[in-house]
Amino acid sequence: MSSSYPPLAQALVDTMVTAADAEPQRAVAFQGAPGAYSHQAVRETFPDALPLPCAGFEDAIEAVQAGRAGCAVIPIENSLHGRVADMHFLLPESGLRIVGEHFVRVRHCLLGLGTQAQLREVKSHPQALGQVRRHLRSWGIAPVQFFDTAAAAAAVAGDGDAAVGAIASRLAGALYGLNILAEGVEDADHNTTRFVVLAREASQPAAGVAAMTSFNFEVRSVPAALFKALGGFATNGINMTKLESYLRDGKFSQAEFYAEIEGSPADPAVARAFDELGYFTNWVKIIGTYAKARDREA
């Protein structure tokens, strides 16, 4: 565990780690300090689990790989900022499987020890500060960058200065005893983060449940390779909801892709599309098939 957490957060981390170590089968790993939005996602997805805070995404993944947690809940994309950095590398390399997804509506709170009128500055993660900048400017409150939203709340609570507040979740305010001075202060009312559940073993949604499938592939270095590779999804009526490219190992000739579709390889139409995909790619890795949490248009 990281020693960089503020003391109040570190005390909670130590308690939660001890509980998770005693019952690893109930532990669910997440990245961040207690009170982070990832912690909120764990509580919403697995109400009876033992949340296991981890310093980084790699640490959360390693906890599952090593059996110290039954699964991990990891953010993969945000409606304002797009994909979470390095997830397209970490997911296929981890050897873990996506077994579920969950959407968290990010409602930022203005937290403090006193009143809003007393605040002169607020601490939070740079992304969170960027998401509330119009409100802060209108209130005349200066933003101060911190490495984590929940850790910022813990630091404010520990420092005891009523002139310094934090932007974090309602959960963080409750954990560290801060007043909720304003709620829903994000500038965009659609701010939502999508999380995936990672486990060592793959799972399949129950029959009749709408499914999503996530996979990686590398196209061959030939003209129109991507067009041909994806043609099978179009001709078989498969809806592709995500397609992102990235380069690995300094290569500029062959792109790798992370993609998501609606449906399961157990469906005949999806199976035909994957067969066609295989003809025009060097390799295909299915990362997981899991129940769809909500329609993408919502």
Rank of each mutant, 00 (worst) to 15 (best):
T45F: 03
T193E: 08
A168N: 15
T241I: 10
L181G: 15
P126I: 02
L181I: 14
A151I: 13
G67D: 06
A210C: 01
G158M: 03
A69P: 00
T192F: 03
G130S: 04
D187W: 06
A11F: 11
A206I: 09
G114V: 12
S94P: 02
D59F: 04
A85S: 12
D161P: 08
I167Y: 13
S4M: 14
S2N: 08
N191C: 05
G112W: 10
V17L: 03
H39Y: 07
L171E: 12
G184Y: 12
Q118Y: 13
L113T: 09
A211W: 06
D161Y: 08
Q118H: 13
L277S: 09
R68M: 02
A225D: 09
M240H: 07
T115R: 13
Y5I: 06
V197A: 01
D48L: 04
F233C: 04
R248F: 03
R200L: 12
F57E: 11
G140S: 10
V197N: 06
V164L: 15
L226H: 01
Q131K: 06
Q116F: 08
A11I: 12
A224P: 04
L113G: 07
E201V: 02
M1L: 02
Y37F: 13
C109Y: 13
V164Y: 14
T289R: 00
S169A: 12
K285H: 05
A269V: 10
P47L: 03
A273Q: 14
F57D: 08
A210K: 06
S221P: 00
E77W: 14
E186Y: 02
P51W: 07
V156W: 10
